[in-house]
């Protein structure tokens, strides 16, 4: 009897290894982007507020698409005869009376602000406010300079230009401080005084970057031309 249970134990182990191998491969080859993540924090807040007002949702309006929100969305979908998958797609959004995209009328969305805020957040969160505005200003100084690409997205996505783009941190959702700093930079604030480069002296390894003339040090970054 003892032997039989040992055998079962071994079999169980194999099954476990089997499953783990399978999922490890599956996850490494698929970057899963959940549909919930496609909603911005403010859109999630809108969903929560609406569902709360109509009595589907009892949790906090915090902009986080958690299990409670999902359950509330499912309930709402069931009541409105939509597919109850807990995902706010175009149909559910329409039933909620909200739009997932901005209207195509006179107004235009400003992807520049968003991109700039993303880069500031990824490169300089935790830095003093001046340091955050300065990163935004460096990007805009590069756009204006003859030595760099001539658009904000060109500068940000230039290969090897920003470590945050290389390691994917650029895709983190920017916080309010990054947005404010990006707006200030777009409106002309530049505490770096025209810098085109910056580096953290504790981590910078390129001898070339050390040879640039430093204009100002803000927090952990040296800003240079």
């Amino acid at each position: 009897m003892e032997k039989v249970s040992k055998v079962f134990y071994i079999i169980l182990c194999f099954i476990a290894v089997f499953c783990l191998t399978f999922f490890a491969f599956k996850n490494s080859s698929n970057t899963d982007i959940s549909v919930e993540a496609a909603l911005t924090t403010s859109q999630v807040k809108t969903v929560q507020t609406k569902l709360k007002n109509w009595g589907y949702y009892t949790g906090a309006v915090d902009g986080i698409y958690g299990s409670k929100t999902k359950a509330a969305v499912k309930n709402f979908q069931k009541k409105n005869k939509l597919t109850a998958d807990g995902i706010v797609g175009p149909k559910t959004a329409a039933a909620l009376g909200m739009s997932l995209t901005s209207s195509k009328s006179q107004t235009q969305t400003s992807s520049d602000l968003y991109l700039l805020a993303k880069c500031i957040h990824a490169e300089a969160r935790g830095e003093p406010y001046a340091g955050q505005v300065a990163i935004g200003a460096v990007i805009l100084n590069r756009v204006a300079s003859s030595k760099f690409p001539n658009t904000i997205s060109g500068v940000i996505y230039q290969p090897y230009a920003f470590t945050a783009v290389n390691d994917g941190q650029i895709n983190l959702e920017p916080n309010q401080s990054a947005y404010n700093a990006a707006r200030d930079a777009l409106n002309g604030w530049d505490p770096s005084h025209g810098a085109l480069y910056y580096y953290n002296p504790k981590t910078a390894t390129s001898s070339w970057i050390w040879s640039r003339t430093v204009l100002v040090t803000i927090g952990n970054h040296k800003f240079a031309i």
Binding site: Y129, A130, H193, G194, L215, I218
Partner: peptide, 23 residues
Amino acid sequence: GESLGGDFDTYNFELKKGDITGY
């Protein structure tokens, strides 16, 4: 600190009031 060698030479200060910081 100071900024030197850019368009303007400046004296730089940090500001603080409660949670608010600035320059």
